[in-house]
Design a protein around this nucleic acid. Structure first.
Length: 728
DNA sequence: CGAAAGGCTCTTTTT
DNA sequence: GAGCCTTTCG
């Protein structure tokens, strides 16, 4: 197969420019994934580069898997030695292999968000502060920001400029020590410690620099400083770095992603070639026009000349319902209606929302109507209590220093080990400089030395309970070398009595099903030797995201947050909750930069659609118990009304509210080609009034009402009578 | 020690 | 409205 044959000239240029740095600015649907895969295929097949010397960074694991399978199609075989994955996954691999150079035990565990918040809360208490007074989330965010900018706890403390920062500094220090003691890393550490590793031992840096002849980074607009630094270091020798991104789709600044990385790239690599991919292959003209109008309201951006050769398509539907229940109901019934029409199947639809909380009402409507759906986030599988419990046992087997996991399961199922016992045990352990697990070992009298002094005087029953737990874990640890992962899994379930424990509790059967599902995941590692299987399993379990789990084979409507929708596409998209306060979210009201990010988020949602876009909002919405009247999203005003059907509702609220409640029942305008004839800013000529500029245009009944500013007068004209002539 | 009930605060987005 | 924490009682 000729790798270049199926590419357009720009895509081809981006594919062939393999020598030196290159920045690819790729609009939505412009085939950027295609370019990345074709570049890799081109490097391997045409240029003879060994896959071992290529790194490709993706935003999600799913994107990585897709790339792998596309490469298989292009090359006719899998590409095994390619370094392919998210930043976090790639860094975890590097640290497992070479982390010992910076004193990291290769058995380290990765703490997910919940674990991380647990440690943090405890750290706040340990430095003598009240977690109620200092919001753990705020402190967590500050620490994450520091780590994302490669600021150590010591540096942070040195430069703290306010009382809050001083507090954060102290907690940061304590938190980091706690992680070290547990031989654990949080998500940010995976990145920052890799940078540390590369900076520390020059041997290591050279090793990786020598290896990676080519580096590609997808979703470059959503990288943060550490990630940028990583790429800069890894690509330091050969400088064959390919960054692909779209500033208009940057939606992760709250995770400290920084669009400025794109600017820095051009500065750090002045010789970088810049390629623009502006042809959209995904959406109809109408959709692209809608999206372009929306995004062009943003001040902080470089204009892009997106275009498409696709058909004109349908107008974007703006729908107003009375309540959120009706909103959900409308979405479901409209989907059913469209599916009956044969043009679509359920899997063609996505319902997108700003906050996860919105998904519940939608989900309920799908259940009530018996329409199958797939909820992408919700209570995530790996965040379920029972799943986390079992995973914690495994983490403990791999790394008994892990205090979070130990505390999680030491009394689950109940063994009569309570709060008091644990706090005594923990302070005893600390006074000896031991981990909890080691303390248990000493308590057990398994080690005969003098450390037993100061041993807390527990009663017989408690001692037996503690000893029982220690022996349990110790047994697992001894067996984990010989048993396959699944056998170990069964052993853990059996010896802990977890099954009985679950089945006796609420939702027992359902929870047990989740455990069986986890067991199936464990089975996926049966080909690896026991020890490797365990650590691969744990890594997989911690670093998966929800989008990763999105199966393609099921014919069901996808319910997804706008953030998660990035990189996906659907024939028809519903964006619900088009209201001020929700989209844009109220947290962004005070900050123009954040407001622009909200607009980008909306842009991302709209540009996922190939054929149909619905923007839906409820007139009244429940909010933390009480219900309030909502205001239509200001983003609706960024889209000229000639692109919308059900148009103008939000402008003429007074008169149209009553109709608006059931607006979907009345307005079924057929799209017409001349609808897009006039748009704001167009120069027009009128026989009587002379030259003017179009202010707005919208559909009224069978005509287009155009508002034109002539010299000194603003006129409302109907297109069919006014005979306006458009001037180029 | 553990279960159950009551009271509190929040909710953006996630690798 | 729900999850999390604290209090209370057995």
């Amino acid at each position: 197969m000729d790798i270049l044959a199926e590419l357009n000239p720009e895509q081809r240029k981006a594919t062939e420019a393999i020598s030196g740095p290159i920045l690819i600015l790729a609009g939505p649907g412009s085939g950027k994934t295609r370019v990345i895969t074709h570049r890799i295929a081109y490097l391997i097949k045409v240029c003879g580069v060994s896959p071992y010397r290529i790194m490709a960074v993706t935003f999600t694991n799913k994107a990585a898997r897709e790339m792998q399978s596309r490469l298989r199609q292009l090359l006719g075989a899998g590409v095994k030695d390619l370094t392919l994955g998210t930043f976090h996954a790639i860094c975890a691999r590097i640290l497992r292999r070479d982390g010992k150079e910076i004193g990291l035990d290769s058995g380290f565990v990765i703490y997910d968000d919940e674990d991380h918040l647990n440690v943090l809360k405890r750290s706040i208490v340990e430095v003598g502060l009240d977690p109620k007074e200092y919001a753990p989330r705020a402190i967590a965010s500050a620490i994450s920001a520091a780590k994302s900018h490669l600021v150590s706890s010591r540096d942070y403390q040195r430069h703290s400029a306010s009382y809050f920062e001083e507090v954060v500094g102290r907690v940061y220090e304590q938190y980091q020590q706690a992680l070290t003691k547990s031989n654990a890393l949080d998500f940010d550490d995976l990145l920052s410690r890799t940078v540390e590793l590369l900076r520390q031992g020059s041997k290591i840096l050279t090793k990786y620099q020598e290896r990676y002849l080519h580096i590609q980074v997808d979703e470059f607009q959503d990288t943060n400083l550490v990630q940028y630094e990583l790429i800069k270091m890894l690509g330091g020798k050969y400088r064959n770095i390919c960054a692909v991104g779209d500033p208009d789709q940057s939606i992760y600044s709250w995770r400290f992603a920084d669009i400025r990385n794109i600017l820095s790239f051009e500065q750090d690599y002045p010789d970088a070639e810049v390629v623009l991919l502006e042809q959209n292959y995904r959406s109809t003209k109408m959709i692209l026009e809608t999206a372009s109008n929306l995004i062009s309201t943003n001040q902080q951006r470089k204009p892009m000349g997106l275009w498409t050769g696709n058909s004109t398509g349908d107008l974007t539907r703006v729908i107003e319902t009375y309540t959120e229940q009706e909103e959900a109901q409308y979405v479901v019934s409209e989907i059913e209606r469209l599916v009956e029409g044969d043009r679509f199947k359920l899997g063609d639809f996505a319902v997108m929302y700003r906050t996860n909380a919105q998904s519940r009402v939608i989900e309920e409507a799908f259940i009530r109507y018996g329409v199958s759906y797939k909820l992408v986030a919700g209570t995530r599988f790996y965040e379920r209590r029972e799943v986390k419990d079992i995973v914690a046992y495994f983490k403990l087997v791999q790394n008994p220093q892990d205090a979070v996991s130990l505390l999680r399961v030491i009394n689950v199922p109940g063994r009569g080990i309570g709060e008091r016992t644990l706090s005594e045990l923990s302070s005893w352990a600390r006074s000896l400089g031991l981990s909890m697990y080691e303390a248990l070992k000493h308590l057990n009298g398994l080690e005969n030395d003098k450390l037993v002094e100061g041993k807390p005087s527990f009663n017989q029953r408690t001692i037996r309970a503690l000893a029982g737990f220690f022996t349990l874990i110790d047994k697992f640890r001894k067996q984990c070398q010989e048993l396959t992962l699944v056998d170990l899994f069964d052993l853990v379930i059996e010896k802990t009595g977890y099954r009985e424990y679950l089945l006796n509790g609420t939702d027992g059967a359902e929870r047990w099903d989740n455990i069986l599902e986890l067991r199936t995941v464990a089975q996926g590692y049966r080909d690896l030797p026991p020890a490797e299987g365990l650590s691969a399993f744990l890594e997989g379990v911690t670093l998966v995201s929800d989008v990763d789990e999105l199966g393609e084979n099921v014919d069901a409507v996808v319910l997804i947050t706008l953030h998660q929708s990035k990189g996906l596409e659907f024939p028809a998209v519903f964006i619900v909750g088009m209201e001020d306060g929700l989209l844009p979210h109220s947290r962004s009201f005070g900050d123009p930069a954040q407001m622009e990010e909200e607009r980008r988020l909306c842009y991302v949602g709209i540009t996922r659609a190939k054929e149909l876009v619905y923007l839906v909002r409820a007139f009244r919405r429940n909010f933390m118990g009480s219900s309030a009247v909502s205001i239509p999203s200001r983003f609706l005003k960024d889209i000229p009304s000639y692109l919308l059907s059900g148009g103008g509702l939000w402008e003429e609220k007074e008169s149209s509210t009553a109709q608006g409640l059931y607006s979907w029942e009345r307005n079924t305008l057929e799209p017409s080609l001349n609808v897009a004839e006039f748009k704001a800013g167009d120069h027009v000529h009128h026989v009587q009034f002379g030259d003017g500029v179009v202010v707005s245009a919208k559909l009224v009944k069978d005509d287009i009402e155009v508002v034109v500013a002539f010299n000194g007068a603003i006129k409302k004209l109907l297109s069919s009578y006014a005979k306006l002539k458009k001037m180029e």
